[in-house]
């Protein structure tokens, strides 16, 4: 049944690209989410405004539209910028070429950063105020408060939302094949066109996603247990 007709390594390489892309986008959006949530909760009005505009605009526009918008515009902006640099310093010819992988990571990270911002904002608000006050009373610096008190407790509240976001990112990477990255969907399409058996190869691609979903469910369950240590559940 699993006769992949010699396209096994090709599809496997695509699957690896999918996983790499999702993990890197997760890191970018995780960082952006933390920054965005701090901006949304800060006392600075400008930071709050920028963060609110970011989350509202990004979450109101379909990700495929944003992906095409950013993917095609980013290169033009970078070209304009390097042209401008070259006019300043004409002795060196400065040039940056974005490959689909990098722009895929930047785009997905930027889009899902908005969703992470909202998740983290809710989670930060859920941490009891007394915890922060106690930490400050111990003389901890703001960063230490964040690292030792806020972050570990916040993660417990954020995990269900993070898990959802991760599953959405994993599935959104399929869109990147539209902008020409050879992920698992792209590989399956190529194999299907070459062997005239698209149905079979697309089912294989779907199965790859199902396996990845199951693995991430397991990891999430483990993380949830880890961050639940020391929390007593109400017995109903």
């Amino acid at each position: 049944m699993f006769n992949l007709g010699g396209y096994g390594p090709h599809i496997l390489a695509g699957a690896v690209t999918t996983v790499e892309l999702s993990l890197l986008s997760l890191i970018v959006s995780f960082g952006l989410g933390l920054i965005g949530a701090s901006a949304k909760l800060s006392k600075n009005r400008a930071a709050r405004g920028v963060a609110t505009a970011y989350t509202t605009l990004i979450r109101g526009v379909p990700d495929l539209v944003l992906m095409l918008l950013i993917f095609y515009s980013l290169q033009i902006w970078i070209n304009d910028f390097t042209d401008w640099l070259n006019t300043l310093q004409s002795s060196i010819d400065f040039e940056v070429q974005l490959d689909p992988f990098t722009s895929g990571v930047i785009t997905l990270g930027f889009i899902y950063g908005a969703y992470f911002t909202e998740t983290f904002r809710g989670a930060f608000l859920a941490v009891p105020k007394g915890q922060m006050e106690a930490a400050r009373a111990f003389g901890m610096k703001p960063f230490l408060v964040f690292r030792r008190i806020l972050f570990p407790q916040m993660m417990r509240y954020a995990l269900p939302g993070l898990g959802n976001n991760w599953q959405v990112i994993l599935k959104a990477t399929a869109l990147v094949s539209i902008i020409g990255l050879s992920d698992v969907v792209f590989a399956a399409q190529q194999a299907g066109e070459a062997t005239l058996n698209t149905f079979f190869y697309l089912c294989i691609a779907g199965a790859v996603y199902l396996v990845l979903t199951m693995i991430s469910n397991g990891v999430l369950l483990y993380l949830e247990r880890k961050y639940m240590i020391g929390v007593r559940k109400a017995v109903l």
């Binding site: 599935k171 959104a172 990477t173 399929a174 869109l175 094949s177 539209i178 969907v185 399409q189 299907g192 005239l196 058996n197 698209t198 149905f199 697309l202 089912c203 691609a205 779907g206 996603y209 199902l210 979903t213 199951m214």
Partner: peptide, 22 residues
């Protein structure tokens, strides 16, 4: 499980290009 575990794009491709090839 199947329809929520796979991307919509794959489902669309499967139905649009895959099924007609059977």
């Amino acid at each position: 499980f199947i329809f929520r575990g796979t991307p919509l794009y794959v489902q669309l491709l499967l139905i649009y290009t895959g099924v007609y090839g059977l």
